[in-house]
Simulated scan of single mutants.
Amino acid sequence: MSIDFDELDVSFREAGGLVPFLVTMAGWVGFLTVKDETPSLGGTGQMMEGLPMTDVKFDDFFRTAQVLSGQPLDELGEVYETLVKNARGLDDGMENFQSACNNIFRNWRGDAQAACAAYGGKIMDFVNDEREAASTLASCLLSYAGIIKAARADWLKLAQNFVAALNQKQENDEASGWKVLLTVVGSLVGAAFSVVTAGVSLAASEAAIATAISFGSAVTAAVADGVTEAAKESLDGEKYQDIAYKYLRACREIESRLVNGINDEVVPKLQQLGESRPTPPSTPVDVGRFDDDPGKVLVPEHTPDNIDKWLAKKKKEADSRPPSNISSALG
């Protein structure tokens, strides 16, 4: 047995109340896969049932739980909330920016006004694109967290059904006179109990991700509906091995749906973000370059010696054209 139960997700370790569920499951899995070398009723029961299984190992029954452990959903929830908060803040910032542009350029006329208005519009477009990128990333985090959270609940339900089916099989055998006794004492289960309970923290919480999930309950529900089919499969069987194989097949289905869900809901959005990041507008030109091409953006970086003559020239040109409205230019 190489699995470290202390590294499994807290939702798995805390299931079951006073006697952790993993302890019960570890006892059954040990009966199925680990040969009991002691002259005990447990060893006799194994031989009568053609156990232990030789084509699967103890850890195989907890592989899905290992796959679904280690993802920091509480931290992802905090990042999600930060992204949403910042995206909303950008909306307010853009409103203030547009209002400031309207006030600054209200009395400007001609090409200078149009050029500055166009540049301000490019800045707004860039920031809006960045806001959309932040919203998309937040959506990716929410989808990923929802997929993991639903799959965790799914595996736990499946594992509980697995243990219940084994218990039912034992009860049926006993009722029919075929006595199969499972020994829950001994080095294997004792070691499993000490490992499982060592890392149990009743104070652990996923409050942050619970808050984040509440923003996307529709996404979470859709993912959960697709994944939980594996947990609904009947695990009844005439032999303990039949129950075990059904459980393992359902675990593979959960893992497959997990990968497909991430590939369908998360990966494409992340790839799109990486391939098409928003580009900020080019740096504005200085006065001399604007004089050569008034269609460019005017942001004087210094005051040339002939600025008064230049301004008089531009004013004369502007007076000969109808004024443009900065508000309409900014959109």
Rank of each mutant, 00 (worst) to 15 (best):
136 T>L: 07
154 D>H: 10
131 R>S: 08
133 A>S: 14
135 S>V: 15
121 G>L: 12
115 A>R: 00
116 C>I: 10
149 K>R: 15
131 R>I: 00
160 Q>V: 12
159 A>V: 05
147 I>N: 00
139 S>M: 13
117 A>E: 06
152 R>E: 02
121 G>T: 08
122 K>N: 10
154 D>M: 02
157 K>W: 07
146 G>F: 00
147 I>D: 02
122 K>A: 10
141 L>A: 03
159 A>K: 03
141 L>T: 00
134 A>D: 07
120 G>V: 02
148 I>Q: 09
148 I>E: 09
133 A>Y: 07
155 W>R: 04
118 A>G: 11
144 Y>G: 02
128 N>I: 06
158 L>K: 07
122 K>R: 14
150 A>V: 02
149 K>Y: 15
145 A>G: 14
146 G>S: 14
155 W>N: 01
128 N>Q: 14
125 D>W: 03
124 M>G: 07
130 E>I: 10
130 E>P: 02
150 A>D: 01
115 A>Y: 01
123 I>G: 01
148 I>Y: 11
152 R>N: 04
145 A>D: 03
153 A>Y: 15
122 K>D: 11
152 R>Q: 13
117 A>S: 13
116 C>H: 09
139 S>Y: 12
157 K>C: 09
132 E>S: 11
146 G>A: 15
132 E>P: 00
151 A>L: 05
139 S>G: 14
130 E>A: 12
156 L>C: 02
145 A>N: 04
150 A>L: 02
135 S>I: 15
144 Y>C: 08
136 T>V: 10
126 F>W: 13
128 N>G: 14
122 K>L: 13
158 L>C: 04
157 K>R: 13
118 A>P: 03
128 N>K: 12
148 I>C: 09
137 L>I: 06
123 I>E: 07
136 T>H: 03
